[in-house]
């Protein structure tokens, strides 16, 4: 039971890291970035290639993945989303979907459709025992990474000037521009951070579930998006809580109810939550004005 719980928190931590990317981009650009899940996949492939083909040590491979994904995030934003800043949200949504198809099919061409076995970077580390439950090292690493990212992001958005600018832009773009904030730069930065986090999530995900395919990112992407909505989209602590709860529910449902129905149960819980709290657990209730 305890082992399942820890595994759930660990999977949830990965979801939370992905969900942060969704929630920050949504908060600032008011768009659902459907290509986010595929950035995870790219992160996985980049770290895979740097370890297997270039023989780089794991930490360097992770840094390489973060670098490539950050650049990718900025480029995607510049090319595809920035020209549509004034367009309807549906148009941006479809563009993001197009981007997602593009990344998946580009990966298909570059790396092929065959699943790749991701190397285990914790081969030499024994399973860790916590209160009698044996958990894999990657589970612990995921939880710790999530905590560090959470604290760092909270400090970043509340203490630094750029972070405050970010919150200002998400609150009111026009007013932020008048205060001398460079809105375009801030949005690019948000995409960069989100994509960098996606790379970390990609490496963790592929280490925990070591099959890498061009579609690896799409299902975790959808679930992390669900987690972001679950916690209240646009809210950073909401993404964390939503992600972890979702991970726990999924692992427990898989262990005790049915592995085929685990996804259905996860989405069922989301629906129940949204019926009672229509803007998620920590979402802001916005009152309609006439």
């Amino acid at each position: 039971m305890l082992a399942h719980l820890i595994n759930g928190i660990s999977l949830g931590s990965i979801y939370a890291i992905i969900a942060l990317g969704y929630t920050m981009v949504y908060g600032i650009a008011k768009m659902l970035n459907f290509a986010h899940g595929d950035v995870i996949m790219v992160g996985g492939y980049v770290s895979f290639c740097s370890m297997m083909y270039l023989g780089l040590p794991a930490p360097v491979a992770i840094l390489a993945a973060i670098f490539v994904c950050t650049v990718l995030g900025i480029v995607v934003e510049r090319l595809a989303y920035k020209p549509l800043r004034t367009a309807t949200s549906l148009a941006v949504l479809i563009t993001a979907i197009g981007m997602s198809y593009f990344l998946q099919n580009a990966a298909l061409l570059i790396w092929g459709a065959n699943p790749k076995a991701f190397p285990n970077m914790f081969k030499d580390v024994e399973a860790i025992e916590i209160a009698g439950a044996r958990v894999s090292p990657v589970a612990v690493v995921a939880i710790v990474a999530n905590l560090i990212i959470m604290v760092a992001l909270t400090l970043f958005t509340t203490r630094t000037k750029v972070g405050k600018a970010m919150r200002a832009v998400s609150e009111d773009k026009g007013a932020a521009t008048l205060m001398g904030i460079n809105v375009n730069f801030t949005i690019s930065l948000t995409f960069a951070i989100g994509s960098g986090l996606a790379a970390i999530a990609g490496v963790l995900l592929c280490t925990a579930y070591p099959t890498l395919m061009p579609t690896t990112g799409s299902m975790p992407g959808i679930k992390a998006f669900t987690a972001a909505v679950f916690g209240g989209i646009g809210s950073i602590p909401g993404a964390m809580i939503g992600g972890i709860l979702l991970g726990i529910i999924e692992i427990l449902a898989r262990a005790y109810i049915s592995s085929e129905l685990a996804d259905a149960i996860v989405f069922g819980v989301l629906i129940v939550v949204l019926i009672f709290r229509p803007t998620g657990l920590l979402g802001k209730q916005i009152h309609e004005k006439v």
Binding site: A91, T95, G98, M99, Y101, F102, N105
Partner: peptide
């Protein structure tokens, strides 16, 4: 995918 993105960019 590229056609899809371009159409969205051009029309919007």
């Amino acid at each position: 995918a590229i056609v899809l993105i371009l159409v969205m960019l051009v029309t919007n």
